[in-house]
Amino acid sequence: MEEKIMELLSEEYPDIDFAASDSLVDDGILDSLTITGIIATLSMEFGIVIPYEEIIEENFNSIAGLARMVEKLQ
């Protein structure tokens, strides 16, 4: 799952190094525009609905966090 998400997001956002940090939100690498873009990409790709409760820093700080969230929602 992690590899797939990494591939997907790296293609969508080539300027961002998603592997660079485990605190992508806290370090300011992901802003709100990018976060909503990521949500749209993941929702469309995996056919999931990401409820607002899941939009917390912990889930968006790393690819591993995103993968955990997607697996939980599938």
Partner: peptide, 19 residues
């Protein structure tokens, strides 16, 4: 951002429309 933008931006309806 937290109470208007994000809930709207991640709403399934908007995401479907974007799709």
């Amino acid at each position: 951002k937290d109470y208007i933008y994000m809930p709207l931006a991640v709403s399934p309806k908007l995401i479907r429309a974007a799709g």
